[in-house]
């Protein structure tokens, strides 16, 4: 079953075309890397899929729900980590996750166990009673991912989840995302190719608002060591 179906999706900011008639599908259970140079339209696509803003033209469906016609149903299927983790600095991590659980309609009796579950999964159990504002960058990112995991959504959309982390934290977060495979469909955007190589099964490359590659990792690299880099540079050259 296709978890994400996008048809001729277009977004214009006044005259500037951010994404231009994107069409692609993402199958359930896959980890998909969403690549492209800065400003290619990755974040815009993700913001449309999560219902943060509407497209100018075209259709997008998440788990069969049109994100424009049935926004609430579509949003219930999605856990989203925006570029900047949306943490309220005044709340504790626990208070914040509780708030998110209530917003996502986690049944009252299960809120506590749900918080414990995602905290364990992202390794933030020891930080639960600290204020969000006191967290290091790495922990902020983890809390952001924990927040996306609440309610066990089918689809995770992570916008540059490793941005601004040190190499060790990067490896940890990637390991964490890899561990989510199977239970969730994961779409993550990044411009760091090495990360994609280690965890993604399918790669979408977007350049100047258009899809320039939509293939499995093996096909794209052709089995060569530097295949992905070569391909990326070749496809985004113009």
């Amino acid at each position: 079953m296709a978890m994400i179906e996008v048809e001729r999706l277009t977004k214009k900011y006044r005259e500037r075309v951010a994404i231009d008639a994107l069409t692609f599908q993402i199958q359930e259970g896959k980890i998909v890397g969403f690549l492209g140079p800065n400003g290619a339209g990755k974040s815009t696509t993700m913001k449309i899929l999560t219902g943060f803003m509407p497209a100018t033209e075209g259709k997008a469906r998440v788990a069969g729900f049109d994100v424009f016609e049935k926004p609430l149903e579509a949003k219930r299927q999605i856990g989203y980590l925006p570029e900047t983790p949306p943490l309220y600095p005044e709340l504790t991590v626990r208070g914040f996750l509780k708030f998110v659980a209530e917003l996502k309609g986690v049944p009252r009796g299960q809120v506590k166990s749900e918080i414990d579950r995602v905290a364990k999964g992202t390794g933030i159990t020891s930080e639960l009673d600290r204020l969000n504002s006191a967290l290091s960058k790495g922990y902020r990112q983890r809390v952001g991912i924990a927040q996306a995991l609440i309610g066990n959504p089918k689809l995770l959309i992570l916008d540059e989840p490793t941005e601004g982390l040190d190499p060790r934290q990067r490896a940890e977060v990637l390991q964490l995302i890899k561990g989510l495979a199977g239970q969730h469909t994961v779409v993550l955007s990044t411009h760091i190719l090495a990360e994609v190589k280690t965890i993604c099964e399918q790669v979408l490359i977007i350049h100047r608002g258009k899809i320039v590659a939509d293939e499995s990792m093996a096909n794209l690299t052709g089995g060569r060591e530097n295949g992905l880099e070569e391909k990326f540079i070749q496809l985004t050259a113009t």
Binding site: L72, E73, P82
Partner: peptide, 14 residues
């Protein structure tokens, strides 16, 4: 300012 509005707008609330 805190970029937390994205959380509210993408949560299943009207």
């Amino acid at each position: 300012r805190q970029k937390t509005f994205e959380l509210l707008m993408t949560a299943p609330v009207t």
